[in-house]
Design a binder for these strands. Structure first.
Lengths: 120, 120
DNA sequence: CAAATTGTCAAGTCAATACTTCAGTATCAT
DNA sequence: ATGATACTGAAGTATTGACTTGACAATTTG
C-alpha cells in the first residue's frame, strides 16, 4: 500500500474502505472475528487456538478495532474483546453500490461489445 | 500475509477469500475497477489517469484477474480488460453469511453480557 | 521495410506487514 | 507482600507488496 506518484486522477483511496478490506484480508484476523461471533473473549483466549503470541493478537486487534469490527475494553487485567455491532454495514454498503453500477453496465455489454473502445 | 506458525487451529485461510479482500484493499485497483465499470479498456488507457507505468497496471490486473473481478484478452497488440460478471458474488455471499451469525449472536448480548466469559 | 504503438519480462528498490523476543507494568490470589 | 496472570511496548526480522527501470517482442501504420 504505497503512495502512488502524483499525476492525473491518482486515487488517494477512501482510507476507511482501505482499512475494512485490509482487515478482512488476513486469515488470522478473520479467525479472530469468527471466534468472537460465538462469545466475547480475552486476548489470551483468542491467542491460544491461533498458536501465535499475545503481542501478535493485540496487533491484529488494533487493526480490527480501527476497521470498526471489534471493540475492546479493559476490565481489571483482562482486555475483553467483542464484535462491534454493525461492523459489516459499511462494507455491505460499498458492495451494494458497486454491484449496482457493475451489473447495470454489464447489461449493455452485448450491444456495446465492439464499438465501446473503437473511438478510444 | 505471512504463514502462521503451525499449532492448534492455525487458519490457513480460504485463499480465494484472501484474494478477494486483498484485491479490493488497494485504492489503485479499486480505481481500475471503477474505470472498467464505464467501459472496457486497454492497459494503457487504464494507466494514463492513474499516473503509473504500464507494468504496474499489468501487475494490478493480474491480481484482479486472479480474484475473479476482471477478464482480459489480447486482441492484436492490445490487451482488452473488462469486468467479470458476477465478480462480486463470492464476496457478497461471504458477507451475508457472516453478517447473519454476527447479528444473531449480538442479539443475545444483553442477556449474556457478564456470564459468557465467567466460566472461562 | 522502418517507425511507432502497445505490451511483456526480469530485476531491483523501498515501505508495509506479520511476526517474534524480551523487558516491563498492572492486577489478582494467597 | 509474593508470586502468578494478563497484558503492553519497543525493537528487530523476514516476507510481501507496490512500484520502477530497462531491455525486449509483437502488431500496426506510413
Amino acid at each position: 500500500m504505497r503512495a502512488a506518484k502524483a499525476e492525473a486522477v491518482m486515487p488517494d483511496g477512501q482510507p476507511q474502505i482501505d482499512r475494512l478490506f485490509h482487515a478482512l484480508g488476513d486469515p488470522t484476523r478473520r479467525a479472530i472475528l469468527d471466534a468472537l461471533v460465538h462469545r466475547p473473549a480475552s486476548v489470551s483466549k483468542l491467542a491460544t487456538p491461533l498458536g501465535i503470541t499475545l503481542t501478535a493478537v493485540i496487533q491484529h486487534l488494533e487493526i480490527l478495532e480501527n476497521a470498526g469490527f471489534v471493540h475492546t475494553e479493559k476490565l481489571g487485567r483482562v482486555r475483553v474483546c467483542r464484535l462491534e455491532p454493525g461492523g459489516l454495514d459499511t462494507l455491505e454498503q460499498w458492495i451494494r453500490e458497486h454491484r449496482t453500477a457493475w451489473e447495470k453496465k454489464l447489461d449493455r455489454l452485448g450491444e456495446a461489445l465492439r464499438e465501446e473502445y473503437e473511438g478510444n
